[in-house]
Amino acid sequence: MYTKEIEVRTGHVAVVHDLTKDAEAFLTEADAADGLLHVWVPHATAGLAVLETGAGSDDDLLTAIDDLLPRDDRWRHQHGTPGHGRDHVVPGFLPPYATLPVIGGVLALGTWQSICLVDTNVDNPARRVRFSLLAG
């Protein structure tokens, strides 16, 4: 197994951050062949999604999260900025992990799919992401 952790600066706004190029660079560094890429976000307020980016889907996802989990005072978890408790619920909908096939050293993603970090926590501008290659 080969593993590496990177830092991603997400800033102070909710964001869908495309990790695909980072994952591809990791696979090149790992001299990957066939196996599985496991992506892990060790945070209680962030998750991962595989989706199309750049055509509005990333903004649609953030809008859906806001609609489903409003940033208001209904949350029992009450620290940080107002409504921050909902950020702790996000990983229940978008898990902090993803496992993807690697074939011939290349991610086996669909045509429009990207691996994305979804961070709605405006209180934490830096995130860690761990890539692990499980070789076949």
Rank of each mutant, 00 (worst) to 15 (best):
M1Q: 14
Y2W: 07
Y2H: 15
T3R: 13
K4Q: 12
K4G: 12
K4D: 10
E5M: 12
E5F: 03
I6Y: 05
I6K: 04
I6G: 12
V8R: 03
V8E: 05
V8W: 00
T10C: 09
G11L: 00
V13T: 12
V15H: 02
H17N: 11
H17F: 10
H17R: 09
H17Q: 14
L19E: 02
L19Y: 05
T20E: 01
T20I: 01
K21F: 02
A23P: 08
A25E: 11
A25S: 15
F26L: 10
F26C: 10
L27A: 05
T28V: 12
T28C: 10
A30I: 02
A30C: 08
A32K: 00
A33G: 12
G35M: 06
G35Q: 03
L36V: 14
L36E: 00
L37I: 01
H38M: 11
H38S: 14
W40S: 07
P42H: 06
A44N: 10
A46P: 09
G47P: 04
G47Y: 04
L48G: 07
A49F: 06
A49P: 07
A49D: 08
L51W: 00
L51R: 06
E52T: 03
G56V: 06
S57G: 14
D59H: 08
D59Y: 07
D60V: 04
L61F: 08
L62N: 09
T63C: 10
I65N: 04
I65K: 03
D73M: 06
R74H: 13
W75P: 13
R76L: 14
H77I: 05
H77W: 02
H79Q: 12
H79L: 11
G80S: 11
T81K: 01
P82I: 02
H84K: 09
H84A: 13
G85D: 07
R86Q: 08
R86S: 14
D87N: 13
D87K: 01
H88Q: 11
V89T: 07
P91K: 04
G92F: 01
G92I: 04
L94C: 09
P96A: 13
Y97V: 11
Y97L: 13
Y97F: 15
A98V: 11
A98C: 12
T99R: 03
P101F: 05
P101M: 03
V102N: 02
I103N: 08
I103M: 15
G104T: 00
V106G: 06
A108I: 05
A108M: 07
W112T: 10
S114Y: 01
L117C: 08
D119S: 09
N121P: 07
N121S: 08
D123G: 10
D123R: 04
N124I: 00
P125K: 01
R128L: 11
R128W: 06
R128N: 12
V129P: 02
L134W: 04
A135D: 15
A135P: 15
G136D: 15
G136K: 08
